[in-house]
Design a protein around this nucleic acid. Structure first.
Lengths: 177, 177
DNA sequence: CTCCTTCCATACGGCACCGTATGTTGGTGA
DNA sequence: TCACCAACATACGGTGCCGTATGGAAGGAG
């Protein structure tokens, strides 16, 4: 069976979601794919290059996806709620997002995470401006909302089951002037 | 130079803060301490036992510390603000807290993290009850506040500098009914 | 002093993963 | 159909860490 570069990033992406950055390792991945590392090293110069291609693929494919999903809602409140709900859905089967957050200081991951975060903060800022906040306050709310998003995701790892019942309250708190 | 069990957990604690769970490794730690792993394995049966003793020491020494610090403030608002401010201080030199959060699914770390989180949520719930919320809403606010705490800490890793200006707003948002 | 326990160094084997070097195959164009 | 090249497999050496086995030093109890 022949494999392309994209095949490997896809396999790596799955491993990343399930086992974290550590699981993106050449030999285990190759074994899992029924191949040998000879194939991987044919497509990538080294492990970091594979990791980088993988997280950049994730960046392309998933960054806008959350925003698109959220944008399908009508009211800003519903958009916010949808945002937080995706947190729960995503974390269930293990998520790439949390795997990256857990390794935010990795030199390959850091720039990707930075770009994605800034993109999302920008979007959230617009959202709060729609809600009638001036730019300054909208920025602050956006940061608070995104921090809350991250925190909820983390909490879901530590103490699942506590997060769900709190979503409406969170949205209310965030949108109240 | 003779070393005690506590000496090793102290060294491990420093490594944990600076390099994460991965840095709590027998051989590097021994080298760093100017000893050999013979010493470590004399005091601990294996690496996991060292890690466990280390995080449990952290639990004993640092869990209550945050709460005590926060309790020194007068008004509930000030307490909340102090809570968020400690996030910033702590993260600067690398923190044990974030190292644990990044490895929340580690079987040694998970139970410790769970206990600490529940303890803090309990405290926060009381705090919101002081603020006049009924128990039900206080619980929700506590969860929101703690999620925000975690998220801010994580954001501080990814995009430092954005967090500071937002603290007052966060407190206002959280305490508004 | 001497014995005995505690503490530790040294030396070893083992595992998991990285990266390289080189041989092998299967498809493709001329 | 043959020559070539991309796409592998295989085999090897290297590194970092784990854990064990064993002998030696250092300090207190007698």
């Amino acid at each position: 069976m022949r494999r392309t570069r994209d095949d490997w990033t896809e396999i790596a992406l799955r491993a990343l979601a399930e086992g974290g950055v550590q699981a993106v390792a050449v030999e285990p991945l190759a074994a899992r794919a029924g191949a040998t590392k000879g194939s991987v090293y044919h497509h990538f110069p080294n492990r970091d290059a594979l990791l980088q291609a993988t997280v950049e693929r994730w960046e392309r494919e998933h960054t806008e996806r959350v925003i698109e999903l959220v944008e399908s809602e009508k009211t800003p409140q519903d958009k916010l709620k949808t945002l937080f709900e995706t947190v729960l859905d995503r974390q269930r089967k293990g998520s790439v997002e949390m795997a990256l957050q857990a390794n935010a200081e990795n030199e390959v991951i850091a720039p990707v995470l930075k770009r994605v975060t800034e993109r999302r903060l920008g979007y959230l800022t617009e959202l709060f401006e729609e809600l009638g906040f001036d730019r300054e306050h909208a920025k602050k709310r956006a940061l608070i909302a995104f921090s809350l998003y991250l925190g909820q995701a983390q909490m879901y790892v530590t103490l699942p089951g506590l997060v769900e019942p709190v979503l409406d309250e969170a949205v209310q708190v965030l949108t109240k002037r």
